[in-house]
Design a protein around this nucleic acid. Structure first.
Lengths: 160, 160
DNA sequence: GTAAAACCTCAACCTGGGTTTAGATCAAGC
DNA sequence: GCTTGATCTAAACCCAGGTTGAGGTTTTAC
């Protein structure tokens, strides 16, 4: 049986092919390469050739972007990935668990803000005197001046 | 009784005083002014004087920043606020409810991503063949080429 | 009266995640 | 061989949300 119809993991794709497969603009591909997220070979005319397993990396970049993970973090994760072949199942489990943790952190942060804002709406904060989300300038006026560190008191938010 | 110890809502504060009360850098105050979020008077030497009720606006800006609300949105909200006095209780209720809605939207978006990522970890997506977060290039290879619209299929994420 | 500190404007710079443009080179079809 | 389209590099530009710096005035403190 011929190997022809099957893709070799290290065969080479042109820019156009990668663009067609991933939907990522050539400028973005160059950008990722410049930032060390992907690597390329060159043909004799200096044009880029992408090894097929780079498609995996690009997919991971897209997933990360969709999740709001900064490229710098992705680059860091990529240093732990095999350089010459596609990431393994195990790699993907590790990466996706880490990203899930980051999503959870972000969700918790937002839920905390929601809680504070709800408390502000539901308490004396409506007078805008004591809320942690709003700087308590009225109170400060009775206490003299000085640099105000915001988010330091929490009389409204956390009355306990 | 003298009015001296009580602050007039329209009395004028210098840059230094506003910086001391809000913790916001002068450059940021100028930036907010340049973008129409706050207004100032000037003294005879052209130096800025802030009417006291601007402190409320600055507090609102800080709260918005903390919530991740873009300044442009804040500027838009501010067009609905009284120009010459502090925002009222009613104003604050209206604004804070709107911001709470935006927080809820962001939280729901993140929860949705978490759900997708969890599904990816827990199903055949681990093979990175069919996941909505990862571009399904293996499948495409058996179907010919063409531009790939990402996030269009949901065989993994939403099997129903 | 003078020096230091604060303030002014305007312009340049920063990060992140790229896009756009200019000018040159390469590959492919006829 | 020639034209057209694809690609190359480098640099400039975009957004947000500001900060930093240069060079000039104003206010304040002694």
């Amino acid at each position: 049986m011929s190997l022809e119809p099957f893709a070799h993991p290290n065969d080479l794709l042109t820019v156009r092919e990668v663009v067609a497969r991933t939907g990522v603009a050539p400028s973005a591909l160059r950008f990722y390469e410049a930032h060390g997220l992907i690597t390329t070979e060159r043909n004799r005319g200096n044009q880029r050739l992408y090894r097929r397993h780079m498609l995996r990396r690009i997919s991971l970049i897209l997933a990360a972007r969709r999740l709001g993970i900064p490229l710098a973090d992705v680059a860091e994760i990529f240093t732990t990935l095999p350089a010459d072949e596609a990431p393994s199942h195990r790699d993907w489990v590790r990466v996706s668990r880490e990203w899930k943790r980051q999503l959870e952190d972000r969700r918790r942060y937002i839920m905390n803000l929601e809680r504070q804002l709800t408390a502000c709406i539901g308490c004396g904060c409506l007078s805008m005197k004591l809320c942690d989300l709003l700087n308590p300038d009225d109170r400060l006026r009775t206490r003299g001046q000085g640099p105000v560190r915001l988010h330091e008191s929490s009389e409204c938010i956390d009355p306990a």
